[in-house]
C-alpha cells in the first residue's frame, strides 16, 4: 500500500476511534431506553414542585365553607380560582393557630370590584352557555363601573361582596 494512503488511513482511523470512544463516554446513561431521549428526563419533569392543592385539600379543613358553596352558583369553582395557589397553606397551616398564621401562608382574599370583574365584567365574548338548565344558562354579567357603585343611602363606596356572598352569590 502506498505510504500516503497508509498514513491517511491511520489518521482517519484515529479520529473515528476517538469519536466512537467519546460517544460511548458522553452518551447519557438512560438515553435510548424508551426512545431517542433520556428516559430519566420524565422523572425529572415529574419531580417539579406543586403549587395548586386542589379543592379536596381545602374541604378537609374548611368543611363549612365548602358546604355553603356547594348549593350556590359557584358550586363547581375550585377555591383556588379566587384565593390563589394553596399548596403551601395546605402543607404548613396546620402547624399554626389561626391568629399565628404567618403572612406567607395566608391566601389571597379577593374583596375588590376588579376581582369579580375578571369573570363578570360584561363582554360580548363572554355570553356563554354554562349549564343545561335555562335558569343558569349564562354567566351573570355586569358593568363593574356602573353596577351599584355606591350605597344610595349612605353614599359609601360599595364592593361586590358587600351585597353578594362570594361563596353563595
Amino acid at each position: 500500500m502506498p505510504q500516503q494512503i497508509k498514513r491517511l488511513i491511520v489518521a482517519f482511523a484515529f479520529f473515528i476511534l476517538l469519536f466512537l470512544v467519546l460517544r460511548q463516554v458522553l452518551k447519557p446513561s438512560s438515553f435510548g431506553d424508551l426512545g431517542h431521549y433520556r428516559a430519566d428526563a420524565i422523572q425529572e419533569n415529574i419531580d417539579s414542585e406543586l403549587h395548586y392543592a386542589g379543592i379536596d385539600n381545602c374541604s378537609k379543613c374548611h368543611e363549612d365553607i365548602h358546604m355553603d358553596k356547594a348549593i350556590g352558583f359557584h358550586a363547581n369553582l375550585n377555591c383556588e380560582v379566587c384565593h390563589g395557589p394553596g399548596m403551601k397553606h395546605v402543607l404548613y397551616a396546620g402547624n399554626f393557630t389561626d391568629r399565628q398564621l404567618p403572612d406567607s401562608l395566608l391566601l389571597y382574599k379577593p374583596v375588590g370590584r376588579s376581582d369579580c370583574a375578571v369573570c363578570h365584567q360584561v363582554n360580548a365574548a363572554r355570553i356563554k352557555i354554562l349549564f343545561d338548565t335555562i335558569d343558569n344558562s349564562m354567566i351573570r354579567q355586569i358593568d363593574a363601573m356602573t353596577h351599584n357603585p355606591v350605597n344610595k343611602r349612605t353614599n359609601e363606596k360599595l364592593n361586590c361582596i358587600d351585597c353578594h356572598n362570594p361563596h353563595q352569590p
Binding site: 505510504q3 500516503q4 494512503i5 498514513r7 489518521a11
Partner: peptide, 15 residues
C-alpha cells in the same frame, strides 16, 4: 503532510 516522504512520479500520479 503526515510525515510522508514519497514524491516519486508514481506516488504523485496516485495523489
Amino acid at each position: 503532510s503526515l510525515w510522508t516522504t514519497d514524491i516519486s512520479p508514481k506516488a504523485i500520479a496516485l495523489d
